[in-house]
Design a protein around this nucleic acid. Sequence first.
DNA 1: ATGTAC
Length: 481
Amino acid sequence: MLQVSQLKKLADYLWEIPASTRPGMLVPAYVYCKEEMLEHILSDRSLEQLINVASLPGIEKAAIVMPDAHEGYGFPIGGVAATRWPEGLISPGGIGYDINCGVRLLLTPLNYEDVAGKLELFSQELAATIPSGTGKGGEIKLAPEEMDEVLRMGAGWAVRNGMGNEADLAMIESNGCLINADPAAVSEQAKQRGYDQLGTIGAGNHFVEVDKVSEIFDESAARSFGIRKEQVVILIHTGSRGLGHQVATDYLRLMMNVMSEYHYKPRDRELAGVPFNSKEGQDYFNAMAAAANFAWCNREIITYEIRQAWQAVFNRSGDEIQLLYDVAHNIAKIEEHIVDGKPKKLIVHRKGATRAFGPGNEELPEKFRTTGQPVLIPGSMGTASYVLVGTNKSMETTFGSTCHGAGRTLSRTAVKKLVGGPQLKQALRDQGIFVEAGSWRGLAEEAPIAYKDIDLVVDTVHESGIALKVAKLKPLVVVKG
DNA sequence: ATGTAC
């Protein structure tokens, strides 16, 4: 276990683990964290895992963790690592099992006072309209050729089939479609697990949440995003369901078997990987892209379901609900960043980390060119969530990345010993929050006491400048699996 | 996160 004394304090929010700390580290590691939250990160294996990441073949500049970091499979969740294109390592552990787990924020034209009397009804309608829960499927059953179309097209498939709005597509990271996606690289088993899972939330920390905008920090960015105080907004957090999970499982197993052929011996077997430009590396990257497209299509169809529930409850057009933005926080992307003063093409792994591109970036839609991209950070259930904006500081220091959420401090088993589902639902109801939960156990596992303080996490990235606060959201309704 | 099991 690493000691505080092994961390070099660079600022109130930033620590360095020098490359000399362990043999084999190719680059230093950086920890974005306030001193008062350091105990969480030091209490599990996340920094040992970060040190392992700092020794991945081809890693550039640094291995980085965000303030919401905790231990994950191989890589810490809340981690960012960029390897040299095209021969650097690609490692499924650096993306995670839930490929393109991500967040999207919908903007409604109504304010809190307009919906206050109908919130309970809306929560029930949302729960009835959006399937949720482990292994749960929905109404849409994809034929094999339709599945391949979804994997190739991403969110555009939903639009083409009448379950999404054309205007949404520009407001999705990568337009909701990674063009290298290859359905042939995705196993039949993965496709089978996903064939009826479009339009479903899943379980764990996934949710649909109705919020009101409780505070504005940056008036000008908020106005440009179309966000105002008291406004009702809707947050979606989910990913690629069983399909993405199976893709990760398949390729981790494959890479464990072949990595020695590429003379790669990881410090931890969970860090299995292969050179990006190897056959297996390309197959994984193209399968990962297909799973990412499935997740974007999933969030687009959930948006369609929300628009229907809105129409049913408020007797207003669902099309008045606008998509602000949709961000991935478990993904690998090929991006150009400046390293040692020179532009370099990199394989950027983000695992529990959000892209936070700043003003002027060509990948952003016109609407966000002058502000930087919206960054959506959900807090733990019943606490707050945030809208931030990407910065050029993040481009310079964190490969254009920031945190992704509050970050767990207690395991699922540990928290269940401290709190029960019914008790938690009542406690949230007492705070004016309507909760619709698919299972008491699942609800208890997501209790806010199992998470870090979202305000501290967001303040850390704000002070460090790797994303700046725009608005704070307060939950009104939570729908969970 | 997850057909909470290879």
